[in-house]
C-alpha cells in the first residue's frame, strides 16, 4: 500500500531523514516508535508532501507520490492526523467534519458524519461549538473523525495519546481497535510503548532519521538491546 525507499528530507539546510525505508501493507496497523527527534513526524510530513522529499521514492497504491502537492496526496486517499491535531478553531465542529466529508463522500469505506458521531458521541453534543472550544481529547477525536470522513485507504496518525488523560487514552485505544477490526490501514507514530505494541501488527523503530528495525510487537518486546539503544526504558 505504502512504500518508502531511501527517502531523504529536511528543513532548509538541515537534513533530518537520512534514507528511510518503510513498508505498510494493506489492512495493517503499522506503528513507528523512536526517541524525540528521531524523525518520525518528519517522515509523516514527507509522506503527505508537507516536507519535500529530497531523494528516494515514495509509492502509494502503485503511484509515485514524492513531489506531489499535499492536496493531491490527500485526494489519492491518505488522511493525516497531525501531532498538533490541527482542528480549525475558527470553524465549528460540524464545519470541520463537512470539509473532510467533501472529498470522502461516495468513496469505499462508508464513513459518514452519522457514523463518526456514533463512535465519538462527545462530538455530537458539540457540533455547533467552535473548534477552539474543544478539550484536548475532543480535538483528537475530531481530528480522527475528520480523517475517517475522507474515507481514506491509509490513515496516518501522529502521537494520538500525547497530553491526554489516561481515561481518554483508553477510549482512543478502544476506538482504534474497532477500526482495526473494520479493516482500516493505519500508520501510527506513538511514544506510548504499550499503546503502540498492543495495537500494531508490525512495528518499526526509528533513530537518527532512519528506520533501524522492523518486526512484530512480540519480537520487539523480547529485544532488550533494541529498547535500550533506540527507545529508552
Amino acid at each position: 500500500m505504502l512504500e518508502l525507499s531511501g527517502v531523504t528530507a529536511g528543513y532548509g539546510e538541515t537534513q533530518v531523514l537520512h534514507g528511510v525505508d518503510l513498508v505498510v501493507r494493506e489492512g495493517q496497523f503499522h506503528a513507528i516508535l523512536g526517541r524525540n527527534g528521531a524523525g518520525k513526524t518528519t517522515t509523516l510530513k514527507t509522506i503527505m508532501g508537507l516536507v519535500p522529499a529530497k531523494g528516494g521514492e515514495i509509492r502509494f497504491a502503485g503511484d509515485s507520490i514524492a513531489g506531489r502537492e499535499p492536496y493531491r496526496i490527500a485526494t489519492l486517499g491518505i488522511a493525516y492526523v497531525p501531532e498538533t491535531r490541527d482542528v480549525f478553531g475558527a470553524l465549528t465542529v460540524e464545519e470541520n467534519l463537512h470539509l473532510a466529508a467533501r472529498i470522502g463522500v461516495g468513496r469505499a469505506g462508508g464513513w459518514s458524519i452519522e457514523k463518526v458521531l456514533a463512535i465519538f458521541p462527545n462530538l455530537a453534543e458539540r457540533m455547533d461549538n467552535g473548534g477552539n472550544q474543544l478539550s484536548g481529547g475532543e480535538q483528537q477525536m475530531l481530528s480522527i473523525g475528520r480523517a475517517l470522513l475522507m474515507n481514506p485507504s491509509l490513515m496516518i496518525l501522529d502521537e494520538p495519546t500525547e497530553g491526554l488523560a489516561p481515561i481518554i487514552v483508553r477510549q482512543i485505544f478502544d476506538k482504534l481497535m474497532e477500526l482495526k477490526q473494520a479493516g482500516l490501514t493505519l500508520l501510527l507514530v506513538e511514544q506510548n510503548f504499550h499503546f503502540a505494541l498492543n495495537l500494531a501488527d508490525e512495528v518499526s523503530v526509528f533513530g537518527r532519521g532512519q528506520c533501524i528495525w522492523t518486526g512484530t510487537p512480540d519480537a520487539l518486546r523480547m529485544d532488550e538491546d533494541l529498547h535500550k539503544r533506540w527507545i529508552g526504558v
Partner: peptide, 11 residues
C-alpha cells in the same frame, strides 16, 4: 487559519 491542514483535507 491553517493552509497546510486544509491541503491535507484535499483542498
Amino acid at each position: 487559519e491553517n493552509d497546510a491542514m486544509a491541503a491535507c483535507l484535499g483542498i
